[in-house]
């Protein structure tokens, strides 16, 4: 027996074909219900069907972050020509993508959209203490550690990231404002190794600049009085590398070259034998991811 299947959409009366073909040993089969229930000549707008999501039971951890231990080198103070190698802790943690801690910073994400995140942030900034610096700077007033609060906005597009942070002193140390702008891109050389070049610039208000680069009272020092003005005072280029060792471990290294510009560049502190417009900082750490 030969079987032939005809869809009703062919538009031929099956009984006629069956009668015609039967003597030839051909059995005509048909889709029994299709013809009357299905409109193959539908000409209206389609009926759009809404699908329902099936979600898995997988949960995100509330906490995620990293803890790194290693060595770092950094200028003794902003504008110093002396650099010191110390042990370093690199700590970052995030709770439910709302609260984050990054070394000396803590913040909360208050606005979350596909391309933008923004919120409030606070940080502790290192000061400048006479016991850390050389004789030439003795006589300048101490600049204590400052606590600053502010706002941030950040975005990332694939592996490109941009961020802006604005801080205002609330500890009475400099009574000024400071803005950091940064952009970078992560190159993923292979599944274990990434390199991210980063460019940044930092702006300071007049009070901020005067605190770190100005000389109010030259008595007892070798400096002339100097009034630092508001503006961009630091531009930097950084290269950050990470090599993944395993699911929870990696090693990281980064190196930042900063150039002090504008009013900072002309500061007598920076121009002194103990100062420099060239600033280097670097860190190498073994990092545990959690």
């Amino acid at each position: 027996m030969i079987y032939v299947v005809i869809g009703f959409e062919a538009g031929f009366p099956v009984k006629v074909w069956a009668k015609f073909l039967a003597p030839l040993g051909v059995c005509v089969a048909a889709i029994p219900v299709a013809a009357k229930d299905v409109d193959f000549k539908y000409s209206g707008q389609p009926i759009y069907i809404q699908s329902e999501e099936i979600e898995d039971e997988r949960k995100k951890d509330n906490w995620s972050g990293r803890l790194g231990i290693g060595l770092q080198i950094a200028p003794d103070f902003l504008g110093s020509s002396e650099h010191t190698l110390t042990s370093a802790v690199d700590f970052k943690a995030s709770y439910k993508d709302i609260i984050f801690i990054e070394n000396n910073k803590i913040g909360s994400i208050l606005y979350k959209k596909r391309l933008l995140r923004a919120g409030i942030i606070g940080r502790a900034s290192l000061g400048r203490r006479n016991d850390l610096v050389l004789a030439d700077l003795q006589g300048l007033p101490d600049v204590n550690e400052a606590f600053e609060v502010g706002v941030f906005a950040g975005t990332s597009l694939y592996k490109l990231f941009l961020s802006a942070e604005a801080y205002f002193d609330v500890s009475g140390v400099h009574n000024g404002a400071n803005v950091e702008l940064e952009a970078g891109y992560t190159y993923e050389f292979n599944s274990k190794f990434t390199v991210a070049p980063i460019l940044g610039a930092v702006w300071g208000s007049g009070d901020y600049m005067q605190t770190y680069f100005g000389v109010d009272d030259a008595v007892g020092t070798s400096f002339e009085p100097y009034r630092a003005s508001a503006g961009f005072y630091e531009v930097y280029a950084e290269i950050a590398m990470e090599h993944r060792l395993s699911k929870n471990w990696l090693v990281k290294g980064s190196m930042r070259f900063s150039d002090l510009v504008g009013s900072a560049e002309n500061s007598p502190i920076v121009r002194s034998d103990d100062g420099s417009t060239d600033q280097l900082s670097a860190i190498f750490a073994v990092v545990w991811l959690f």
């Binding site: 984050f100 994400i109 995140r117 919120g119 941030f152 694939y158 990231f161 961020s163 992560t186 993923e188």
Partner: peptide, 11 residues
Amino acid sequence: WVQKTRKAYAS
């Protein structure tokens, strides 16, 4: 991890 190696809020 590649996209979360920098600032937390930008990841």
